[in-house]
Design a protein around this nucleic acid. Structure first.
Lengths: 182, 182
DNA sequence: CCTACTGTACCGTCCAGCCGGTATAGTAGG
DNA sequence: CCTACTATACCGGCTGGACGGTACAGTAGG
């Protein structure tokens, strides 16, 4: 694995385990097993490092969504269903406990959120492309954001089984019944 | 208004207008029109100040929920409907643009989240007390969290009208139809 | 030797928390 | 009424440490 990736990985781990405040160049270097100079060689500033973290998250999400999309049967709400399934992937970035605290790090510098905004816009576009009822799809996907939020905040509302019921219920709501007005 | 409240108010404003990173004792003092010493007289540390902010948020939420609960007709999902309505209150804490960035401030010190956890637990209890289908209620309320998350992150997915449609759709899903199971 | 990369030493800034001080009000004893 | 003492509220300078960023001196592989 490239040094760059190692550093990003280390930075993520720090945020996850110790909170955003603890993310410093020194600490990231230590955790990555190199020196601060090394970190600053690869990322020319702390903001730059955070940018790297954000990009990584986006890439992971994109990849995961792509995979689930392939696997999801065609039909209405295919993208919405994909998003739901990806959100519950136990290995995905959404389930890294407090992992996305990356986004919290971003709170410090809102400008760094722009790539995320772009990602969201893309998702919405996809969602709109195959959702018979965009309000319905939006509501369900917003619930997925809620799940993410709860994880970020350390709220443990979903025990494993309640979690699965939640997912199934969301999917049900995205499966138009026969004879139901779209 | 007591000095304590003034300080909390000032701190909130800073976080809302300038981001968490800008929240310092000096700045809070300046904005509140007193000196740093004064701030530290009322809150013995920065963490303590943040604790005060969290408490204020909780109190506001509680009050808002109480109000909406009174106004909400009896019947199944009364609490769930209350939470939905409160979430869309334009003057409520949930709609203070980026206001809840308070929670982001908290990201800095996860320990300070404990009161919020307690609040959540109470909400869940209430929710469970009058929801025929807890999975349904949980999903909808999680969507409300998602809304909050999107606001925190500066994602503007709800234009005013889409927002209203979302709320109505959520309420519909909490209004059991005649002849529907459960 | 040169390029890519890593390590170390250091600088300037910022900030939390401390502390000594001031002002005001209340209270008690004589 | 006056003095001594105490409590509350607030002020602002100081300091020690942390952190981002720079400069520069290696060093290993090609």
């Amino acid at each position: 694995m490239g040094t760059r990736e190692t550093i990003v990985e280390a930075a993520m781990a720090i945020v996850r385990d110790q909170g955003v405040a603890r993310l410093t160049l020194d600490e990231a270097a230590r955790k990555a097993g190199i020196s601060k100079g090394g970190v600053l060689y690869h990322f020319k500033s702390k903001d730059d490092l955070i940018r790297g973290m954000v990009q990584r998250l986006i890439d992971q999400c994109d990849q995961l969504n792509q995979e689930y999309y392939q696997r999801e049967p065609e039909g209405p709400y295919r993208w919405a269903r994909t998003l739901v399934r990806a959100c519950f992937d136990p290995t995905g970035p959404a389930n890294d406990p407090v992992g996305g605290a990356l986004l919290a790090a971003v709170t410090v510098n809102p400008v760094l959120m722009e790539p995320v905004h772009a990602m969201y816009a893309k998702w919405m576009e996809r969602l709109a492309s195959d959702s018979p009822d965009m309000t319905r799809a939006g509501l369900i996907c917003t619930a997925m954001d809620g799940l993410y939020f709860q994880r970020l905040m350390g709220l443990r509302l979903c025990e494993a089984d309640a979690c699965e019921r939640l997912m199934n219920h969301a999917l049900e709501l995205l499966t138009p019944k026969e004879g139901e007005p779209s």
